[in-house]
């Protein structure tokens, strides 16, 4: 048998106490419990994020090869980065992938979400198919695209071109086509998650707004532009920020697909950091590059907030 007890309502804080802002009795207890419950997450963040970030910051001022002891070099690593053309080439590639890839994939995701939100037949199947690239291991995705972009006549992309009488292209072997090819893969892989976020947001929109617009005689385009898009602003901000961060974290795709080549034409910052750290064994320089990347991501997040208007839907 189960006995249930109705919890007694918490005693309300006297108005006078509320006015003075002093937390006493149950309020203080609640705050203490809050801190206790938050402590594991705080400790986790401190140990696995806070300390490594501080240590990385310290290492960025050293010359460290992981075998011999670190040597303090002041701002030398940062000076090296600013004169390193390869680092800025990687940055440029990341920006191309972000500036072109993110808006395109967001637009496709939004259109797909709106279509799927209209209750089309087989909606669940379409949703799963569109989301599938996101949950598939990037290494597997890259291997499939390696075959698609194979420079031979048997590569799927070249087979498709041959139907139109176009010669086989050396997709990943040509510096001029390699980055666009990588861009296609990142767009394709990024649509699923964005679509899902937009779809969830669309399903949370109040139908009354659309009913009111109908009464006012608004057409589908007007409703999309004046209601759907503004109401999706928090979702857009979230999608934008997570996409920017994900873009600057792209590594495994490049590692399997191109190794940053040919001639560094597809190298990205994380790949350069990996190369510097674990191939060249210049850990101090690699951590300085990581610090720069962190600062860029913070700046881009702030910029996104300004442009899109943050997480508030108003």
């Amino acid at each position: 048998m189960t006995t249930t007890t109705t919890p007694s309502a918490p005693p309300s804080t006297p108005p006078a106490e509320r006015a003075t802002g002093k937390a006493r009795g149950p309020g203080k207890r609640e705050a203490r419990w809050g801190m206790i419950l938050a402590a594991p997450a705080f400790l986790h963040s401190l140990i696995w994020i806070g300390i490594p970030v501080i240590v990385a910051l310290g290492l960025s001022f050293t010359s460290y090869d992981m075998v011999t002891s670190p040597v303090f070099v002041g701002f030398d690593n940062y000076a090296n980065i600013f004169s390193d053309a390869l680092f800025w080439r990687a940055m440029r590639n990341n920006l191309v992938l972000a500036v072109v890839g993110i808006p395109v994939s967001m637009l496709i995701a939004l259109v797909l979400a709106v279509l799927l939100n209209r209750g089309v037949r087989g909606q669940s199947l379409f949703r799963t198919l569109i989301f599938l690239p996101h949950v598939t291991a990037t290494v597997a995705v890259a291997l499939i695209w390696l075959w698609i972009f194979a420079a031979t006549d048997n590569g799927l992309a070249n087979v498709a071109l041959s139907f139109f009488g176009i010669d086989a292209q050396p997709w990943l072997n040509d510096p001029d086509t390699a980055l666009p090819a990588v861009l296609v893969v990142t767009i394709w892989q990024g649509i699923g998650l964005k679509m899902l976020i937009y779809l969830a947001s669309l399903q949370g929109l109040s139908p009354e707004l659309y009913e009111a617009a109908d009464i006012d005689g608004a057409g589908p385009v007007r409703k999309f532009v004046s209601i759907t898009v503004p109401m999706l602003r928090p979702a857009t901000f979230f999608v934008l920020v997570t996409s920017i961060v994900a873009n600057f974290q792209t590594f495994d795709l490049i590692y399997v697909l191109t190794l940053g080549g040919p001639a560094n034409s597809t190298t990205v910052i994380t790949y350069q950091i990996y190369q510097t750290a674990f191939q060249q064994l210049r850990m101090g320089l690699a951590t300085a590059q990581s610090v720069i990347l962190l600062l860029i991501l913070v700046a881009l997040t702030i910029l996104s907030r300004k442009v899109v208007g943050g997480t508030r839907g108003d």
Partner: peptide, 12 residues
């Protein structure tokens, strides 16, 4: 690891 990209730069 910096040699290959330079050689590729010439070859392309």
């Amino acid at each position: 690891e910096q040699v290959g990209p330079q050689i590729e730069g010439a070859l392309t």
